[in-house]
Design a protein around this nucleic acid. Sequence first.
DNA 1: TCTGGGGTCCTAGGACCC
DNA 2: TCTGGGGTCCTAGGACCC
Length: 388
Amino acid sequence: MSNNDGVCIAVNEFAKDVGVKKFEPYFKQRELIERTGVTVFSSNFTLYGAVSDRIMQTVARLTPAIEIYSIDECFTDLTGISQDALKPLGHQLRDTVWKEQRIPMGVSISPTKTLCKLGQYAAKKIPKINGVAVLTQAHQWEWLAKRVAVAEVWGVGRRLNASLTAMGVESAYDLTQLGKGVARKLGGLPLERTVRELNGEHCIPFEFNPPSKQQIICSRSFGTKLYQLNDVLESVTTFSVRVAEKLRNQESLAGRVSVWLVSGQDQRSRLSAEASVNLPGGSDDSRLIAKEAIAIANQLFKPGCRYLKAGVGLVDIRPREFWQRDMLSSPVSGTKNLMPVMDQINSKYGRHSVKLARQAGAASFSMKQELLSPSYLTRWADLPRIIC
DNA sequence: TCTGGGGTCCTAGGACCC
DNA sequence: TCTGGGGTCCTAGGACCC
């Protein structure tokens, strides 16, 4: 399930077969789920992140260079590896990850990222491919593209899919035949690039050194609805501390902080209020960022409203070393070592080991996670036990 | 009762410059 | 009589991704 046990965001084959739907609210499917014996888990990104790190390390060990694209995907650059060696390498990757982590992994090898993503579809759906798709020749990817709906193409979302199918573009192959001018007009530069990539032209480059974030957000729906100012301020403080941590992690300063509060009775009557302020001279100090965020939240808060969700965001982010100081603001205070020390303690002894007083207990707004799986890889108490 | 969270890039349009 | 041409920067909104 999603955060807060709200919607089902991933379903396995068994669940799919009995009719459980992705992106449908849990409460609507609960009866079906319980009746059919489907097992449900709250999301546990600590666990998934730990498994992901291990797999990425395995892939990095066996390939020349890796770009971590998401928690469960990476690209590697196989330039210079001979044609004959590609498929064996693909199987070696897949087998090693299975052996070491017991996670089934698909491998797809081709000249462009978009074709790789197409190949992943095949690696997953077409059994005879055996988890490793090699699409290095035009006839290979054309064969596949004719069998894949245009909606499955990387870069074609809901809207583009609707426009494309209305024009009679139904398969990925149809999309490869779309003129560049038409593509450009319909979906701008991104779609033109998608068409080129599907034709084997390498347009989307590798990112071996991921650029730092330009925007850092922490936003959560509350486990229970909040009515009290103090509860809302506690959540906003905690979210501020989290974004400041992420900011320090990438060694940047932020020039602006914004806060939003979402209130209402239900989805239909949702109201969102947002405001932001500048941080003159930039900052990465949890205390300052929290102080500004609290001031904003104080202004946005309306007594009597029922609060569902809050968020804190940082924008105007630049590397610490290149930051242009504000001529009018006072110089950096003498406590510049405090944040690194807090980070070290929290990293060693666990998040929130030291915190701002205003963060308090976190219980008032914390997520609903009633069906949480154990954090097998990151919590001593959750280590599996063998009982003899 | 009840519907996630965190990002990126592109484009159009407005305000401004000389 | 008649009202240019070539730019930059910023922002909001829309599309996409996982």
